[in-house]
């Protein structure tokens, strides 16, 4: 187990190195400068700005600087938001995205698994069709439409929730639902199909024959095995959801991390691009690692490569 984790950590480091390198060169290849401005300023000032942010160095020096920055987790000052450090920007906005993300995850998993189980239990009956329809709707309706509609009806027309902002728990309900809906749909579909698969297996028939109740079988036996594909899906999902969504944050005016991913690129804010990319990569890579480790707890048949017996 320890060996396995160490090995995976090595891979993570290699992956990070590759990501930083690719990001650096893509960033440099993209046209446009962080200091391009509507009101032009003298070339002397631009030179000074380039010097301040180290942009006048040859590319290999800049590359080296970025590698060192990444290794020391100090990404430097934003080029757009004067004197704001990238680290501060991430550490202030990430808790918001994390809170919202966890809320959305709990909703997505809760509703998704429940809908999936119901659909599987009432296979080809009304509850199945209903749950499947909702799930397909959830997957296919884009989140910005859903968010806009929810904002219009629940917040504006009915006045149940605030329209936007981030000042308390009731501000988080609509955005969390908007994020959760499509993921819940996907989880429901996954749960349903693997539940159906399990329902035909020997051990379920055996349990039935022993006279166990429908729901007891589900919770004691089927669900545990059926959830494996869901857990695989949860790794990348967690990484994606807890780092925030640009669209949802934009519509509900949430001060989260998601917008920095997009805005740093349009602003050509090199330090923030690098900071957010590395941060997201780390979360994603670790989420996947944790999922792999979780497998062994959920399904004892799975052995990690390199793990001792």
């Amino acid at each position: 187990m320890i060996n396995y984790i160490l090995k995976r950590l090595m891979y993570i480091l290699i992956a990070l190195f590759v990501i930083v390198t690719v990001t650096f060169f893509l960033m440099r290849l993209a046209p446009g400068s962080p200091f391009a401005s509507e009101r032009n300023f003298p070339p002397q000032i631009e030179e000074k700005l380039n010097e301040t942010y180290g942009l006048n160095n040859p590319w290999y020096i800049q590359y080296k600087d970025y590698l060192i920055d990444t290794a020391s987790f100090n990404f430097g000052e934003s080029m757009k938001y004067k004197a704001r450090s990238t680290n501060d920007m991430i550490s202030e906005s990430f808790p918001v995205s994390l809170t919202l993300g966890i809320e959305a995850m709990l909703l997505a998993i809760g509703f998704g698994v429940l809908a999936g189980v119901i659909a599987a239990l009432y296979h080809n009956k009304f509850p199945d069709y209903l749950a499947t329809t909702i799930a397909v709707l959830g997957i296919s309706v884009p989140s910005f439409i859903l968010a806009g509609l929810m904002q219009y009806f629940f917040a504006y027309k009915l006045g149940l929730f605030p329209v936007s902002g981030w000042k308390g728990f009731n501000y988080s309900i609509l955005p969390a639902l908007a994020i959760a809906f499509s993921h819940a749909g996907f989880i429901a579909k996954l749960t349903r199909s693997s539940m159906l698969e399990q329902n035909h297996s020997e051990y379920v028939k055996m349990a039935r024959a022993k006279g166990l109740g429908k729901w007891t079988i589900v919770f004691r036996h089927t669900l545990r095995n059926a959830l494996l594909p869901v857990i695989t899906y949860l790794g990348p999902l967690t990484a994606g959801v807890v780092t925030g969504s640009f669209i949802i944050e934009n519509i509900f005016a949430i001060p989260g991390l998601g917008k920095h991913f997009v805005q740093s690129i349009t602003n050509r804010d090199y330090t923030v691009i690098m900071g957010t990319t590395v941060f997201y990569s780390i979360i994603l890579l670790f989420a996947i690692l944790i999922v792999d480790i979780l497998y062994t707890f959920i399904d004892p048949r799975i052995k990690l490569k390199g793990a001792k017996k």
Binding site: P95, T99, I102, G165, F169
Partner: peptide, 20 residues
């Protein structure tokens, strides 16, 4: 861990005077 995170993050605002 979840409840700790949720409690710690909070929502960054005084929820008491809700103007909306």
């Amino acid at each position: 861990v979840f409840s700790l995170v949720l409690a710690a993050c909070g929502f960054g605002g005084e929820s008491s005077d809700d103007k909306s």
